[in-house]
Amino acid sequence: MPTATASQTIGPYWHLIEHKEWADLTRFGAEGERIEVTGRVTDGAGAPVADAAVEIWQASPLADERFPGYGRSATDGEGRFRFITLKPQPVAGHGNQTQAPHLSIVLLARGLMTALRTRLYFEGEALNETDPLLSSIEDPVERATLIARSTGPGVWTLDIRLQGEGETVFLEV
């Protein structure tokens, strides 16, 4: 039986499949706590990654015809992505564990041979203390790379650093 097909980079011209409305997960009429999620993607020299595709998937609220659960945002000239979505609730983990509210992130860009995966959690959530992933990261500086800060009413900000100082914790799933 063949193994999984190999990944190849998304390249610099993936915008041929970009549809800006995909960054708004409420566009089909979903109702709930509407939030904005934004941040900048930078490389190992601190330069903006201006050609990335940032994707999110959230298991909460449950996806349905009015809420796709999935979004894609192109980064702009400053490396900034921006989503409108609904605030996730806690979801089940392994056994009787509960995971703090979070978004799954997939990052794709020229120079990335495979998708980079990480998560976005929300500052101030009590469950962050016991979340299985967050609590497994001993270094508080590394842990903080997964936790978005509240930067305005309903606005959450998390920068993603691909390499070097402040490098984001990336995941193998």
């Binding site: 999984a4 980079t9 995971q99 990335l112 041979m113 495979t114 691909l162 193998e172």
Partner: peptide, 30 residues
């Protein structure tokens, strides 16, 4: 069967691949 993130012959990977090892995550519903 999958390419590495650090692929030196492909120049754009130089500043874009993480230096730290990826952290293994047991898959959940997410």
């Amino acid at each position: 069967t999958q390419p590495p993130l650090d692929a030196p012959a492909y120049g754009s990977t130089h500043l874009r691949h993480p230096k730290r090892a990826l952290r293994k995550l047991a898959q959940t519903v997410s």
